[in-house]
Amino acid sequence: MAVVYWIFHKEVSAFFNSLIAYIVVAVFLAGNGLFFWIFPDNILETGAAQADVLFAMAPWLFLFLAPAITMRAFAEEFKTGTYELLATKPLDDRRLVLGKYLAAVALIFFSILPTLVYIGAIYGLADPVGSIDLGGIGGAYLGLLGVGAVFAAIGLFCSSLTDNQIVAFILAAFLCFFVYAAFDLLAELPFFADYNHFILLLGLQEHYRSISRGVVDSRDVLYFLSLIAFFLLLTQAMLERRR
């Protein structure tokens, strides 16, 4: 576990030492703020004391946040040759992947943390003050973190495919989009009309829907965990091929 923590710590500090990290997180927060407070159908316009706009839009912003956080994870190591260095250490790939993965999830968690300011604002603006559904919002945050955790696993996998960060970013953004939304679109096709329910269930968005309203469904949790496990195993397999 000490090894995992060492990698975790190294990754997190590396992230915070780069200026790009702050830009990425600031853009993510600005995007959320715009959708929630400024753009049409914003909360001040609808006047509803709920945060559903945040939970509807944040996954889309994750499409760039998560790949930006994970793109350097392995691609950078491959490029600078530090991976060979790591490979000589008494450190197996499993722990390496786990450490980097936990770091990515922690960073995503860190990025959504400041949106609690919004919840505080709704809390204060609600009539009467504080009459918001904290239970539902808490559940939705869990769901958001779940989506982030899946995206982190996908991003890590994409980073393990290449030694080019940009390629890793684009691959991850596309794959995340595909997993999140593509099945919803495919299910709309007349060709799949008879299987649309099944096709919907393959997608991440379908599994995010109920938790984003505050209802935790054991099947959705299982789906999230399965995707994470699958992509982390794939990542490990990719690393093995490098050795």
């Binding site: 001040l44 004391a49 709920q50 603006l125 009539d127």
Partner: peptide, 21 residues
């Protein structure tokens, strides 16, 4: 029905937006 305090929102719209973003 959970609603925002309409008056509070109208009176401070710009300030709220600036702060929150």
């Amino acid at each position: 029905i959970r609603r925002l305090d309409y008056k509070k929102v109208k009176d401070n719209e710009a300030v709220i937006r600036a702060w929150v973003i």
